[in-house]
Every structure is written in structure tokens, then in C-alpha cells.
């Protein structure tokens, strides 16, 4: 019987589905375990803040926040510029150039600002977390920590999580402002709108809650990036290639999770009337 027989192909297909389902179940189990461990450890850290490795928090904030600032500002500025260009082309047909300020303001603050910052943070921080923890796993440093009775979550995950919780909203604020500035540049140069008119329109349509909604999203994205990065690091196989695979996987999974979370939050905001 040929290996390409109909029965073998069907069996392989079923086997692949089974393995994928098994992997998803394992991932879900690992994720649940990690989230449980993070919750337990977070409670401990809240009760004993001095037990948190604040120096590590600073390091990760510098790595994921201040070092990512130039790229975040540039990308969000260009995003605002592109968005305003596209909106201007459509708005011009109806003589509604001033509504470009609305389009840019709402899109950047509620959607694109947090999303673009999350994408950049995934590429920088998520991959770095996965690679770091994966390498430690290869070097059996995690096993050593466990052997000595230290919680790897408290030492390795919580500082990253806290750093992301602080750095992401701050980065998002920078991203929002630079995105709005990009739209402003298009408004006054390409559309010929008076700068004060564009500014007045922007502040007339935007509300503190608009910015707050975007910042809530960025916090959720930060938590996701940190957890997924650390999870993939812990799941890393004990060889160099395994670390590479876990790094790639952390980026892909983070982006996927961010998009899903963004959809859920957007729907939630809509249901709540924001």
C-alpha cells in the first residue's frame, strides 16, 4: 500500500489536528498555571513591596520604555500623517477637511496609538523576555532557582510585568501626542487649515475619557506581552534553536493575543457607550 494512499493522508490530517489541539490545551494549561502563579506572587509582592526586585523593574522599564521611545514617536507620527492623508482624500470630496482632526484624534487615541505601541513593544520586549527566560532555561538557571526555593515568577516575571504596566501607558501617551502632531502637520500643510482651527477642532471632539480608554488598552496589551513573552520563555526547549523558536512564537502569539484583546475591548467600549 502506497504511503500517499487516501487512508494515510486522512490519518495524518487527523493526527495533525490532534497534535494542534493537544498543543493548544497544553498552552492553555501552562498559561493558566502561569497566571495563577503570577496572581499569587503579585498578592505577595503587594503585601511585601520590598520583596520586588525594583532594580530589575527599572532595567526593564528602560529597555522596553525609554529605549523604545524614538521608534514609538517616529512610527506614531508617521501613522498620524498617513491617517490624515487618507482621511483628507475622502473628506475633501465633501468639503469636510476639518473632520480630518476628528478622524485622526479618535483613531490615534482610541485605537492606533495603543496598538502601534503594543506592536513595537512586542517586537522589543516580548521577544527579549522570551529569549532571556529561554536562555536561563537552557543554562538551567531556572531549575537552580527552584532548587534553592526561590520563586522564578517573583524573580523573573513580576519585574517584567510591573515594568510593562508602567512603561506601556507612558509610551502610549508619547505615541498619542506624536500621532496627533502628525495629523496636525497634514492638516495645516496639505489641507491648508489654520493651525488654531485644527487644534480647536481636535480639543473640541476629544475628551479625557477618549485618552483613558486608549491607556486602558495599552495596560492590557502590556500585561499580555509580558505574560506571553515569559510563558514562551518557560516553554522554551533546552537548546539554542528552541530559544529561537520560543522567541518567534512569543512575538506571533503576542500579536495574535493583542489583536483579539483589542477587538474584545473595542466591542466592550461600544457596548458601554464610549
Amino acid at each position: 500500500m502506497s504511503i500517499f494512499s487516501e487512508e494515510n493522508v486522512f490519518n495524518d490530517f487527523i493526527e495533525k489536528i490532534g497534535k494542534a489541539a493537544q498543543k493548544i490545551c497544553k498552552d492553555m494549561r501552562d498559561l493558566t498555571l502561569l497566571v495563577g502563579d503570577i496572581t499569587r506572587t503579585s498578592w505577595y509582592v503587594i503585601k511585601h513591596p520590598s520583596k520586588l526586585r525594583w532594580r530589575d523593574v527599572g532595567y526593564y522599564m528602560d529597555l522596553c520604555g525609554s529605549q523604545a521611545l524614538p521608534i514609538v514617536i517616529m512610527i506614531c507620527f508617521l501613522m498620524g500623517l498617513i491617517l490624515a492623508f487618507q482621511a483628507a482624500v475622502q473628506a475633501r470630496k465633501f468639503g469636510g477637511e476639518i473632520f480630518v482632526a476628528d478622524a485622526v484624534g479618535f483613531s490615534i487615541l482610541k485605537e492606533l496609538g495603543p496598538l502601534m505601541v503594543a506592536m513595537i513593544a512586542t517586537g522589543r520586549a516580548g521577544s527579549a523576555f522570551a529569549a532571556e527566560i529561554g536562555t536561563m532555561k537552557v543554562n538551567e538557571e531556572i531549575s537552580a532557582l527552584e532548587t534553592m526555593g526561590f520563586s522564578p515568577t517573583r524573580f523573573l516575571v513580576i519585574p517584567k510585568l510591573v515594568a510593562m504596566l508602567i512603561a506601556m501607558p507612558v509610551l502610549t501617551v508619547f505615541g498619542d501626542v506624536s500621532g496627533l502632531f502628525g495629523g496636525f502637520i497634514v492638516g495645516i500643510t496639505m489641507l491648508g487649515l489654520p493651525g488654531m482651527a485644527y487644534y480647536t477642532r481636535t480639543i473640541a471632539v476629544l475628551h479625557p475619557s477618549t485618552m483613558a480608554l486608549g491607556l486602558i488598552k495599552s495596560i492590557v496589551f502590556g500585561i499580555l506581552i509580558a505574560i506571553v513573552g515569559c510563558l514562551r520563555g518557560f516553554q522554551s526547549e533546552s537548546d539554542a534553536q528552541g530559544v529561537g523558536r520560543s522567541t518567534t512564537s512569543s512575538v506571533v502569539t503576542s500579536i495574535f493575543m493583542i489583536v483579539i484583546a483589542d477587538s474584545v475591548l473595542t466591542m466592550l467600549y461600544t457596548f458601554l457607550g464610549y
Binding site: 522599564m61 525609554s66 508602567i166
Partner: peptide, 8 residues
């Protein structure tokens, strides 16, 4: 880092 946080 301080500058980043404060300006943010």
C-alpha cells in the same frame, strides 16, 4: 528612565 517617566 526618570526623564521618560516624568515627561510621560
Amino acid at each position: 528612565l526618570g526623564l521618560f517617566v516624568l515627561i510621560g
